[in-house]
Design a binder for these strands. Structure first.
Length: 816
RNA sequence: GUCGGCGUGGCGGAAUGGCAGACGCGCCAGCCUUAGGAGCUGGUGCCCGAAAGGGCGUGGAGGUUCAAAUCCUCUCGCCGACACCA
């Protein structure tokens, strides 16, 4: 390997450690709370410290780093913090293996590894603000916030059928159950168990969580739709149906279609409905009990399958339709869910697909009460669920269904037998976890005083040092009651780790505060997060919970924002062999491998250039070499332009004017594309600039002030992508450290301006005229300018133009 | 089933309704080299053609427009989310 002596060579391994040390020493990414500059809170979702980070993680954090560096150069005071979502099961699983280490040690080791790798990629954070959710000085405040929820009536304990993962041996939130299976174990079906557990009343915030999605216009449309569906608002009515022969009993049903009330031909209760026993007649009792038992035993998967046939049994009881006094049979069927609405429905087979299917199977009557525009069908072959005209509905006949909805609701309310009602699909958030490695729920159970919250001055409730289930650790859970000092028992469940991550973005504002979870003044200074970057897998879980927490804190007067994240970006995942890259899948490419091969800068650019940031990409290193070539080319152009001139040979005609225009356009485009997080195209524009600069030199262009300017622009624009190389080149040019001193290049719009033309055509089918207008005008403005021009005015001669077309100058010849 | 998204060269992918295929990979040819897994130059959507040139082209079929990958309708295919929520 003999390299030719005529060139200084770009050797990333020699310059990258140097600059990483300089940045650390200078603390270039430290955010000043008191700064005259406008703030920019740039946040990446903090990771679970699971071991070595892969190039998949790096892609995400490089994007964040790019933005942080760019905003910094643009004159913002940037808050770019990092931390670790450190509680959770993998640490425990590691501990449970024979000879396993303590979760705390495992976590700390992984954090150390991760930190080293992030630094290796040249990613800068304000490490002074690092938070680790498993540290007592963090989870103390997680517990504090739980108590706040408790004080505000938002945390409650209830016996409920809960989702139980038999492998992790813990309960799960609804959001953590995917298709009836555990989110961590896609092969494991979740079981239903009745347990007393802690819940957070997120349902109290359902409407606000829905309404405020309107404010999040810089979130991906997809995520907003997903949250809307998850909250699942529906409008309808609750109606009380008296039970025949039981004057004191009423069954309350919920329907979204009160306009179909006359079409109710039977009623269905969920198997778990409290009145099932009562309405069942003696002769039906055995069959009903058997059915209810069977339904209880079924797994969630079996019950929720829409494929299987609906089943049910008649109770023998009758309910009375309050609207027309009709007696209809009461059935029990497991297609009705006890957890939604009132756990009971009126079945309108003519206008509900599920009821239709059930009615056909059990030969129950089907009565048409909503007619399609073509008129009543008489016999229905399938449920007609669209709006229509009411028929067979007594005094309401002839009304459109929307109108009927209102009239019947009015009638129900006037008679006191029903009322309008809004329901949500969203359920309260079950936060108890029967696990060691989490924040203990700060509650004490006292035989005298019942549920007693741990007083604030006794926080944190610290985990015992030995790794062992808390419920099997009497030395830990036996305590005294804070109220009566008598013997009492601690809550031995810990909190869902999603609680930890529902407020970490606030802790970054004052990470060392030991009086409160966060300093409200500082939090209000930095919040809201201006840019939040992370995976779409959190579209519901983390993002919904964080929004909920923020609203609670707003109501408590602790923050001034009602939404935590203004702009959200979901980056795509990096796959390899078709699977998401991960340590457990065994297909990970480590940061060491990437940075070691061609340097961190090449790795950073390549991560951005491999595909659109929001798309999943398949990892391959075929294109990495092209990026290295690009960096080497820039190195030569900047530091040894004379060697480029010497080689000559380009046929491209690039003169000073072309170069100037290219430089100006690149500033505009790259700025715009960085801002829109379109990093792959930003790289392409920079490559074009380098190519143009090379052509310029090879065409004999002078290395004058114009040239120097283009060199500086190239270095500044490229700096966020390849900071080590750019800083090194900048220094070798004799300039001061770029990150410290260099602002973002100014965009000279005059240079990039493209002359525009307004064409007025087809007055009386003939006349054409053209008019130059300034660039930068919108089409409307340009057309307006055309009409006020004397030239066009004269040409029109009082006639109306039949058409005005707006075209860019370069395309004028294409318009007929 | 419902909702959302996406279909562009050999590949990754570019295109405020305005010259489709930027940029890069790969490939071909040449230069320079003792050498090339380095560097440089040129070429590279498909078809016909030696070339000039011509024809066809953004899953498919229609439509709007001076102009459509882009907007509208229908259709096919792929991906994702939700999925008996009354």
């Amino acid at each position: 390997m003999v390299s030719r002596p005529r060139r200084s060579v770009y050797v990333p391994q020699e310059i990258e450690p140097k600059w990483q040390k300089i940045w650390a020493d200078r603390g270039v990414m430290k955010a000043a709370d008191e700064s005259p500059k406008p703030k920019f809170y740039n946040l990446v979702m903090y990771p679970y410290p699971s071991g070595n980070l892969t190039v998949g993680h790096a892609r995400n954090y490089v994007m964040g780093d790019l933005l942080a560096r760019m905003k910094r150069m643009q004159g913002f005071e940037v808050l770019h913090p990092f931390g670790w979502d450190a509680f959770g099961l993998p640490a425990e699983n590691a501990a449970m293996k024979s000879g396993g280490v303590h979760p705390a040690k495992w976590t700390h080791d992984n954090i150390a590894k991760g930190k080293r790798e992030l630094k290796l990629m040249g990613i800068l954070y304000d490490w002074d603000r690092e938070v680790t959710s498993s540290e007592p000085d963090y989870y103390r405040w997680t517990q504090w916030l739980f108590l706040l929820m408790y004080e505000r009536g938002l945390a409650y304990r209830a016996m409920a059928p809960v989702n139980w993962c038999p492998v992790d041996k813990t309960v799960l939130a609804n959001e953590q159950v995917i298709n009836g299976r555990c989110w961590r174990h896609p092969d494991v079906e979740v079981e239903k168990r009745d347990l007393e557990q802690w819940f957070l009343k997120i349902t109290d915030y359902a409407q606000r969580l829905l309404d405020d999605l309107e404010l999040l216009d810089k979130w991906p449309h997809k995520v907003r739709v997903m949250q809307t569906n998850w909250i699942g608002r529906s409008m309808g009515a609750e109606v009380d149906f008296p039970v025949d022969g039981m004057p004191d009993e009423k069954i309350r049903i919920y329907t979204t279609r009160p306009d179909t009330l006359f079409g109710a031909t039977f009623m269905v209760l969920a198997p778990e409905h409290p009145l099932v026993e009562k309405v069942t007649t003696e002769e039906r009792r055995a069959r009903v009990r058997e059915y209810v038992e069977k339904a209880r035993k079924e797994t969630e998967i079996e019950r929720l399958s829409t494929e299987r046939e609906k089943t049910g049994v008649a109770t023998g009881g009758l309910a009375i339709n309050p609207l027309n006094g009709e007696k209809i049979p009461i059935w029990v069927a497991d297609y009705v869910l006890v957890t939604y609405g009132t756990g009971a429905i009126m079945a309108v087979p003519a206008h509900d697909e599920r009821d239709f299917e059930f009615a056909v199977r059990y030969d129950l009557p089907i009565r048409e009460v909503i007619a399609p525009p073509t008129g009543p069908q008489g016999v229905l072959r399938e449920a007609y669920v669209a709006p229509g005209t009411m028929v067979n509905s007594g005094q309401f006949d002839g009304l459109e269904s929307a109108k009927g909805f209102e009239k019947i609701s009015d009638w129900l309310e006037a008679k006191g037998v029903g009322k309008r009602s809004v329901k949500y699909r969203l359920r309260d958030w079950l936060i108890s976890r029967q696990r060691y490695w989490g924040a203990p729920i700060p509650i004490v159970y006292c035989p005298n005083d019942g549920i007693v919250p741990v007083p604030h001055d006794q926080l944190p409730v610290v985990l015992p040092p030995e790794y062992r289930p808390l419920a099997e650790n009497p030395a830990w859970y036996e305590t005294t009651c804070p109220k009566c000092d008598g013997p009492a028992r601690r809550e031995t469940d810990t909190m869902d780790t999603f609680i930890d991550s529902s407020w970490y973005f606030l802790r970054y504002a004052s990470p060392h505060d030991d009086h409160e979870p966060f300093d409200p003044e500082l939090a209000n200074h930095w919040m809201p997060v201006d840019q939040y970057t992370g995976g779409v897998e959190h579209a519901i879980l983390h993002l919904l919970y964080s929004r909920f927490f923020t609203k609670v804190l707003y109501d408590a007067g602790l923050v001034e924002v009602t939404e935590p994240f203004m702009r959200l970006f979901n980056q795509g995942m990096v796959k390899r062999f078709g699977q998401v890259m991960s340590k457990s899948a065994g297909n990970g490419v480590s940061i060491d491998e990437l940075a070691g091969a061609q340097g961190a800068d090449a790795g950073r650019i390549y991560e951005m250039f491999i595909g659109p940031p929001e798309e999943d990409v398949e990892w391959n290193e075929a294109g990495l070499n092209g990026v290295v070539k690009f960096l080497q080319r820039v190195w030569r152009l900047v530091l040894e332009p004379e060697t480029v001139v010497a080689e000559g040979g380009s046929s491209a005609k690039v003169d000073a004017e072309v170069l100037r225009r290219r430089v100006a356009q690149t500033i505009g485009k790259v700025t715009e594309h960085y801002d829109e997080l379109r990093f792959n195209t930003a790289v392409a524009f920079l490559m074009e600039l380098a190519n143009t600069m090379q052509d310029y030199l090879q065409a004999g262009g002078a290395r004058d002030r114009e040239w120097d300017y283009s060199v500086r622009v190239l270095l500044k624009l490229l700096n966020p992508l390849a900071p080590h190389a750019c800083e090194e080149m900048w220094e070798r040019l004799g300039e001061k450290g770029m990150l410290a001193d260099a602002g973002w290049p100014e965009f000279d719009s005059a240079l990039a301006a493209e002359p525009m033309i307004v064409l007025v055509v087809q007055v009386a089918g003939k006349l054409r005229d053209r008019l130059d207008v300034n660039a930068g005008l919108s089409e409307q403005e340009a057309v307006k300018a055309a009409f006020s021009s004397p030239k066009v005015h004269a040409a029109l001669d009082g006639r109306e133009p039949s058409k005005v077309i707006y075209v860019p100058d370069r395309l004028i010849n294409l318009v007929p």
